[in-house]
Structure formats: structure tokens, C-alpha cells
Nucleic acid binder design. Structure first.
Lengths: 257, 257
DNA sequence: CGATGCATTGAGAGAAATCAACCTGAGTGG
DNA sequence: CCACTCAGGTTGATTTCTCTCAATGCATCG
């Protein structure tokens, strides 16, 4: 379960010149740089940010990026792939607190205590940029644009969690599930992917855990939505047929008999 | 309902010299300065922070400090009193996202979009310090201690919300309520108040809303805890008798028959 | 091929919601 | 002073949504 992550970076292999590989991993050439930390930075500032980034590392599926209680040294920007974060309570059961995709920042909850407050695990083979927080702090003093965007990202995390609270607090099962799908849909859209056709990177159990539903309930909901012609499902492949109605269900405007 | 807040500051009355009133409202003389934004600042830095703080203003009970959608210009540090923040969904029902007390910062969720994401309402007559965010940002560049603590406070808000997610996600009614009481208890303790005897500043309905329970359930739980000798209740007056057992219930270690 | 992991489907149980009645105390006004 | 209202809180009976338990299906894999 607690698979450790190798330091291997296969990109530095024989036939590729070193600087080319370095180039490929720079912020400026990353497809996420308009969403991620370097958003809005000029070329020079982006280079300075590049220089403090420890390394880009691969995180294989199911590997742990960090664990609750680990000392906090780095933030992680997701370059590629998907992660889940979850907390574990004393009873030993976990609560998934979020699913995260490329362009998002992991680890901000650790700043307050210098220890990570949750586990982060890759849902598929992924890549992250390691951002040493103390070095990032040094940049803040003369890169106000960077600081401002960092604050926006933290604030965004706060509102994201507020929305989950709303979801867990006052939504019925069908609303929750619809809201979950709508959320994925819009996040894929901002990343330039299809908003109506995508693959779930997490299993039913993980969806259920996140939404506080049982795996059975998730299965039943998926089936109900399918029967009502709202979407097509094939294992983890989702195609949304009736986006407006699904939105309406998520909003509570429409009830799903 | 939407009571507007007067600009009145009764402290500038005749027999009190102006600078004395100014002195009384400075960070250095505020009992919360070891919890609040100025934590860890030297005298000089604290003065600089003082200078950008717009005004200290009174917020009467039930008055709205800000409303969802309002443009974001200030953060608010609570000097005195209690607030609730809540979101409203399209169906019109509200979800309380937090109860906030002196020393805490309100409005951080607004940074990401420059609009407030929730309403903030005083639960009792309260006082806040208005902190113009753009002026605060100017201070960051040469007050690293301030910036660092600001980051800690944002991070703290993220972990606070994660804990609520855990609460809403996998706790039973009695656990939620016990966890709620334990949370208040420890927060009063850090503020130098009794951890076992305090007054609830919110009604049963607000507690229920926050914990996603009905008002009836809250009432029954209160009664059950009372019968089991865990606490004494008198309207909003709470006295915790068996703190360890209440903690155990919150943790799920012990079940409350 | 059975084994294993994940997903689906059905029947029954349970925790909390809903509905409804009632209590209590503060405030109001005759 | 007492009757009245009204909001907030309590208590009891019933319902409902989702969970739990159990069986089954359906892929992948050694």
C-alpha cells in the first residue's frame, strides 16, 4: 500500500540532450502554466520560478505523494494526472477531501502546522513539480504577481471546500452525484477537454466516499441517470447527454424521480 | 433582515481624548494580538500594520458584515464577539459554513474572485477591524513575518474546513454534536476562557444547520448527553461535566447509547 | 480455468427527518 | 396583573432515504 516513490527520471536518458529535457519541463512549456502558479508571470519572473522548483517527478498510480503527519517542505503542482487527498480519523476510516487534476496545487493545508494534514495519492500515473515552500516565500517579496496568484489559489481552495460542505450538508444523494459530475465537467472544460465526455479516474468506492454515499448508492444513481437518458456509462467512461438537466438536478431546481 | 451598519463609533465622545481611544484600539493593546494577524510582529511592524487598518467598527447583533457577491475590499479581524458565515444555494436554503470568534479573520474566501462567497452575520454585538486587502498586500513585500502568519491563517482555514468535511462526511449525529462542543471548548481555551463552561452564541437552528441535523435532533442530543451526565444545559448555557467521555464520543471511540 | 477485484441488483433495517403537538419565557398591551 | 402573542425549544409518532447485508454478474489475470 505505502509504495515509495523512486527518484528515477527516465527523461534523462542517453539520446536526449540534457537541456532539451530541462526545456520540456519548464513552466513556460507546460500546458498548465495559465492555470497553475506561474499564471500571469512575465518571462523573466517565470524563469526565476523555474529555478527554485526542485524537480519534476513521476508519481505512479497508487503511490503516496505525502502522508498525514509528514513534515511540510514542498507544495506540489500537478503537471499531469490525477490525485486524491483524504483524511483518516481515529476509527481508521478515511474521508476523501478532494480529487485534484493538472494545474492544481497540493499541500497548502500543511502551511499552518508545518505538517501535512492529509494523505495525497495518485489515481493514475502522474507527474508533479516539487516547489520548496521556503524558497517560494523568498520569491514573494519581489514578485507581487506571483504572491497575488498564490493567494488566489489558496482562496480558491477555501471556496472549493465550502462547496463540498454545501454538498455534504444540504444535498440529497442524486444532487450530490449530479453536482460531482458537473464539477468534473467544468474543470475538464477549463483545461480544454470535453465537458461532456470523460473518464472517471476514481472507482465507485472513492466517489462514494467523497460524496458520503455507499458504493451501492453510487451504482444505483448512475443507473437511474442512465435510464433517464441523462448520460451514458460504460465502466468509468462517462458521456453526458443532457447537461442542462443534470445541472438542474445538481442545483435542486429539478428533482430526479 | 438586511440591517445596514452605521459608521458610528461611540468611543470618540467628549470626555475621552482622541488619542486614548486610538490607543485602545491598536493591535498592541488588543487582547487578540497573539492569535490574530499581528502575531509575532515586533513593535515597529505592529505599528505599520496598525496604520493601514481602516477602522475598528461595531457590528450589532444580526447585522450583516458582508454579503455574498459583494465586492471584496477588506478582510475583517474579529476583535470582539461572534459571527456566522453561510452560503445560500439556488433553492434558497442556507448552509452555515462556520462560527467565528475573536482573533479570527473573515473574508479570505473572497480573494480568489474579488467577490465574497458567503454572508457574514454577527451572532451578538461585535467589533471588527477592517483590513484593506490591497494595503495589506503592500506590507507583505517587506514584512515577511506578517506574510508568513497570513499564510498560516489561510492554511488554518483550509484545515478547519477539511475537519468540517470529515464531520459532515462520516460522523453520526451524536459524534457531530460532541465534536462541535469539543471544538468550541478548545477554541475558548486558547482564548483564555473556560473550556468546560460557556454560552452558546447561536440558536439550536443554527447549530443544526451547521451540523446538518434538524433542530429536533440537536434538542434530543442535548437531552441525551444531559441524561448521561456528560453536561449540564440551561438554554444556551453549557457546562461540560465529562470532557474526556465527550471527546471519546467525538472521536468515535465511545458510542453513545 | 477458478480466483480476484470491482460493480450491480435486491430485500430488509436503521438513523435521522418530517410532521405535529406542546412547552416555556420574554415581551406586549389591555 | 393577567391574557395574549410569538419565537425558540422540547417531545413523541411516523416516514423516508440511504445504508447494510447478501447474492450475483462481469471483467481481468495468473
Amino acid at each position: 500500500m505505502s509504495q515509495s516513490i523512486g527518484i528515477s527520471n527516465p527523461e534523462t536518458k542517453a539520446d536526449t540532450p540534457l537541456d532539451l529535457s530541462a526545456l520540456r519541463t519548464r513552466c513556460s512549456s507546460c500546458s498548465m502554466h495559465e492555470l497553475c502558479l506561474p499564471m500571469g508571470l512575465g518571462e523573466e519572473d517565470m524563469n526565476r520560478l523555474d529555478q527554485i522548483i526542485g524537480r519534476r517527478r513521476k508519481v505512479p498510480r497508487d503511490a503516496v505523494l505525502y502522508r498525514m503527519g509528514d513534515p511540510f517542505t514542498n507544495l506540489y503542482a500537478i503537471r499531469l494526472g490525477h490525485f486524491k487527498t483524504y483524511q483518516i480519523n481515529r476509527e481508521g476510516d478515511q474521508q476523501i477531501t478532494g480529487f485534484h487534476m493538472a494545474g492544481e496545487l497540493l499541500g497548502m493545508d500543511a502551511i499552518s502546522t508545518d505538517r501535512h494534514h492529509c494523505d495525497a495519492v495518485a489515481l493514475e500515473d502522474s507527474e508533479v513539480c516539487e516547489i520548496p515552500f521556503s524558497r517560494l516565500e523568498h520569491l514573494f517579496s519581489d514578485m507581487p504577481t506571483l504572491l497575488r496568484h498564490f493567494h488566489r489559489m489558496m482562496s480558491q481552495e477555501i471556496t472549493r471546500e465550502q462547496n463540498v460542505m454545501l454538498l455534504l450538508g444540504n444535498m440529497r444523494a442524486d444532487q450530490r452525484f449530479a453536482a460531482f459530475l458537473m464539477n468534473l465537467s467544468s474543470r475538464y472544460a477549463t483545461r480544454g477537454y470535453s465537458s461532456t465526455s470523460f473518464q472517471l479516474r476514481m472507482g465507485r468506492e472513492e466517489i462514494g466516499n467523497y460524496l458520503s454515499l455507499t458504493i451501492e448508492s453510487v451504482s444505483r444513481l448512475l443507473n437511474k441517470f442512465k435510464k433517464q437518458g441523462l448520460l451514458k456509462v460504460n465502466n468509468r467512461e462517462i458521456e453526458i447527454i443532457d447537461l442542462p438537466r443534470l445541472k438542474a438536478i445538481a442545483a435542486g431546481t429539478e428533482v430526479c424521480a
